[in-house]
Nucleic acid binder design. Structure first.
Lengths: 353, 353
DNA sequence: AGACCTTGCGCAATCGTTGTTGCAATAGCT
DNA sequence: AGCTATTGCAACAACGATTGCGCAAGGTCT
């Protein structure tokens, strides 16, 4: 009795059960009650199916029912704490709705974004979460053509709801925390430029960074007046680049600035890479904050304020938009948290932690 | 001219182009050359399709062709550096093969694993990578019934190829690094138990932990003779639990042990959480290592040796197994790296870094 | 002119499942 | 007995794409 290499179909089962294919379908899809299949028949079919190792062909079902049971999410990268938390939440929410999550990263590449969305549309996903899109408008057009419900997350889009971090508020909190911990050096002191706070990392062209930069400038201006252009160094997300930029800044200033707002975890990785090359006293007079959170980064040998974005909150709200049938381009902002340093550092400012 | 709400099909296109559905199909699927469709016709069809916002229905194609174009991967969680790196590699390899990656986490829950694999089989994925399965045998049975090619990663399975970290080698390296940095206190000194290394975290029941524990014991035995049972505290992966266990251990020993092998990043998070409650001198005499890597954890205020597993290497080898058609239950081991501390810590042992 | 090949395309079956319709057989009622 | 409901199931037509096969028109060769 050679086992068939191919997966059995409802026809195989129907032959074995002496029932029609439609009876088998109803028995296995759970619709047997409303299709008036007797419990005995249904049970028998189910047993045979189990014996035969039957798996519903969801492609066929999807084709027939015109819904695939898939939900999609695209995001910049997987290997990032913030985004991978989103993946985790996304899955949980998808499961709650009986959908299969498909999460694809697009490496911040607009062409890859388009290709991926096209693929997902072709697989007939039922909704799409677009996280951190670099080119929302192109995606918008595709989703619209396909009649695909979608929500933007983390970076806003036009033409559909967006759920984003309240970057302005987060950056204000972080900037204030940094200013509060900055040495209140007299304005006229030597190295005046060092007394001002700097922002490092991120891409001024992206919405989130722009918001944070504005907030940073606004809060800093309350205390120092308008900051020079040079105090915002949006050098991207690469650790190595951030490291180099910081080194160059230190060269120019003759030391670290009194305040440093690092605009992403990856940039912060580069910052730390530079800081560890300095003697400890070099950064004792610097207040450091990072927009984004990492549990270990919160434990460095100097105090770091961090902003923890609410990944689950963002995803939950995004699903709520989908469930609620919201189509308008509303923008929901979700507040992040400010996480105080947990470091054991006992330097000059530790009493402020 | 009301745009159709539904997605157009090849039939819609065929009507508009004045061609048959099969011509449209061939023109759009790229098979027009071998089906002897003239270039002019193909081009015309393609233009109309683009105008109409046509998307191939991959469910229908998959049904007809009996292959879906999907590759699956299941893994314990997304929000973990090691696994999310795997996701990133998995995607890259899937893309190289023109396949759409579907990555689902199963939260180390055997039932969830089974449900997920069933779902993926039902979507007719073409191959499956099973990362860190808690119940490989159940999954093996399902894959076998469905005739699904699959490879185990990180934790080995029976009945199909496995690509795993060389945990034994990694743990040996890490243990040696810890021993080398342990204060070579005389055996007879006060608090003798503190002079021995401890292993904390992980689950002795899982294959990887078991391998590491064995290696740890073996290497430690070379120097100290067989270690007592109590020196291995496999208390799971939860940070809070690790924190509590470490606190309890310190209570028993009257301080930190001379060497500490932490068996996972999450456990290490808990360890750090406890260490920061101690005065710096408390851990100055302790050599710490962690199996798994985090760039920030490598920058703590005390030196930590870390083992960085080769996520991309594992995935690459797993795909090689699939490509090579390997069906036998071979076990491939991929060596991890030992990463030396980059911390700026200048305590008693810093010269060893 | 007839045989034969090439080019360009359409027809119809098919993939596995589902919802609709129809049809016996039994039950219930007067 | 005659008539209507109900039950339990089978037949069939989609869903959208692919593909083996065949056919007609035109070209080439003898």
């Amino acid at each position: 009795m050679p086992k068939p290499r191919q997966k059995p179909t409802i026809y195989d089962i129907s032959r074995l059960a002496g029932a029609s294919a439609s009876t088998v379908s109803a028995s296995l899809s759970g619709a047997w009650r409303e299709r008036r299949i007797s419990e005995a028949t249904a049970r028998k079919v189910q047993e045979i199916a189990a014996e035969q190792g039957y798996f519903t062909n969801l492609q066929a079902r999807g084709l027939r029912r015109a819904r695939s049971g898939l939900v999609g999410m695209i995001m910049p990268v997987h290997d990032n704490r913030f985004f991978s938390s989103m993946s985790q939440s996304f899955e949980a929410h998808a499961r709650m709705r009986g959908l299969c999550p498909v999460i694809v990263s697009t490496l911040r590449d607009p062409a890859e974004e388009r290709r991926t969305v096209e693929t997902l549309i072709s697989y007939a996903i039922e909704s799409l979460l677009i996280v951190g899109a670099t080119d929302p408008d192109a995606l918008e057009q595709m989703c619209r053509a396909a009649g695909l419900r979608h929500v933007y997350v983390d970076l806003p889009g036009r033409g559909a709801p967006s759920v984003i971090s309240d970057n302005r508020h987060g950056a204000e909190m972080l900037t204030r925390a940094i200013l509060d911990r900055m040495p209140a050096g007299g304005d006229g002191e030597a190295g005046g430029a060092r007394a001002l706070p700097y922002l490092l990392g991120g891409d001024a062209g992206d919405y989130a960074s722009a918001q944070r930069i504005n907030a940073f400038r606004a809060v800093a201006a309350e205390r120092f007046g308008p900051l020079p252009e040079a105090n915002v160094i949006a050098c991207g997300y690469a650790p190595a680049r951030a490291s180099r930029e910081l080194a160059a800044l230190c060269d120019r200033l003759g030391g670290l600035p009194a305040g440093l707002f690092v605009n992403s975890l990856t940039a912060f990785e580069g910052v730390v890479g530079h800081l560890v090359t300095l003697p400890p006293e070099a950064f004792a007079g610097t207040a450091i904050g990072c927009y984004d959170y990492d549990p270990f980064a919160a434990f460095l040998q100097f105090p770091v304020h961090m902003v923890r974005q609410n990944a689950d909150g963002l995803i939950a709200r995004a699903f709520a938009m989908l469930d609620g049938g919201e189509e308008a381009a509303v923008v929901i902002e979700v507040a992040p948290d400010l996480v105080a340093p947990r470091t054991i550092y006992k330097g000059p400012f530790s009493e402020l932690g």
